[in-house]
Design a protein around this nucleic acid. Structure first.
Lengths: 192, 192
DNA sequence: TCCGATCCATACGGTGCCGTATGGTTGGAC
DNA sequence: GTCCAACCATACGGCACCGTATGGATCGGA
């Protein structure tokens, strides 16, 4: 085997984290998986903590900056960007494993810090979208919170009860449409 | 120390689970916490797995049957019951620790099974509420999914970024009102 | 009261991980 | 080619937990 860089270790750590949570970011298993030994690891890193930090740094970049920049690179109107954001959640190829894994270990100090940052950044972006749609600031903020809550909840449902969600096809399309309609509504609630 | 029953072990296990997740359901720490030793545990249980099952059984009862029955015991209209359900999430004294802990360990087989059951039961109940509000079946189901997603997401936000949520007072009331309005809307979406 | 069943304490071996110590290997500068 | 620094393998001790073995304590009934 050729020699490994610090970056390869960090990248493998993020992979492991996505697959098996924080507990899977373990030095010895990772070394085996990389076809090397702990000797390599403790040369590049001071300890496990440092590896976790490196993996989290990768995740911050990939999960927010990258996503937001990709959306903003197009010139779609705000409503369309919101739609794109949400249809991504329904796509089975969506890379949400890391999100889920980190939410699961939100009690860990380093993870908590990364989550707080990412959450703030994402909420800020969604709030801006709602403002572009004409919502006044306070309402835009509330809608962003609701939208992001729905996203987070959707992640959980995808994992814990995927068969309870609408199947791909017309049902799922109707679901996505209904969610967006509810999020974008400006009308008073229906009276039963 | 007096002798311990199987039920006391199970109850302590649920406590530990609420506080520290599945990993905290560990025999030796629990024994210490209970002022006894593993000797007691391995008399009442075949192993750790059995203890986890017992704790999950307690949780199923406490987290769904009990909640739903409490709501249904009153004679509030459907809209009011939905409001009660949601305002509970905002209340800081809400006992959502176990929910969060189990969502965090959703990959564990026993936890996954318990979560699937509870999710189905809760979704069924919320769907029924929306049907009582006059929504046709398919739409009621979709709204229930959105509502429950919002609940699950709210749990995560309460843990990972509580300071990004509206503070108790008028802002929080407006937030709750806005969420309910969006969930209950029957109108077409606002055009930007 | 004594005896068997119930319940528990203690000691032990096993596993999987972390981190350290130490010596070996490789590769580029010269 | 030599040599030093970068890099890695191996061996070790430690920790926290699981599960077993075994003997001791306790309690209720004949």
């Amino acid at each position: 085997m050729s020699r490994l860089s610090r970056e390869q270790w960090a990248s493998a750590a993020l992979d492991a984290l996505s697959g098996g949570g924080l507990a899977a970011v373990a030095v010895e298993p990772l070394a085996t998986r990389l076809g090397t030994t702990k000797g390599s690891f403790y040369w590049h890193f001071g300890g496990r903590e440092e590896l976790v930090q490196a993996a989290l740094q990768l995740w911050r970049q990939a999960s927010t900056t990258s996503i937001i920049e990709r959306l903003e690179s197009g010139d779609a109107p705000a409503a369309e960007r919101l739609r794109q954001l949400f249809t991504q959640v329904f796509a089975p190829q969506a890379r949400t494993d890391a999100d889920l894994a980190l939410l699961a270990d939100a009690d860990h100090p380093l993870v908590a810090s990364a989550l707080a940052d990412v959450t703030e950044q994402r909420l800020g972006y969604i709030t801006a979208l709602f403002r572009e749609l004409g919502f006044p600031p306070a309402r835009a903020r509330r809608r962003a919170l609701l939208a992001y809550s729905a996203y987070l909840g959707q992640l959980q449902l995808l994992r814990t009860a995927p068969d309870l969600l609408p199947k791909p096809g017309p049902a799922r399309t109707a679901y996505a449409d209904d969610i967006l309609a509810a999020l974008l509504t400006d009308q008073p609630a229906k009276r039963a």
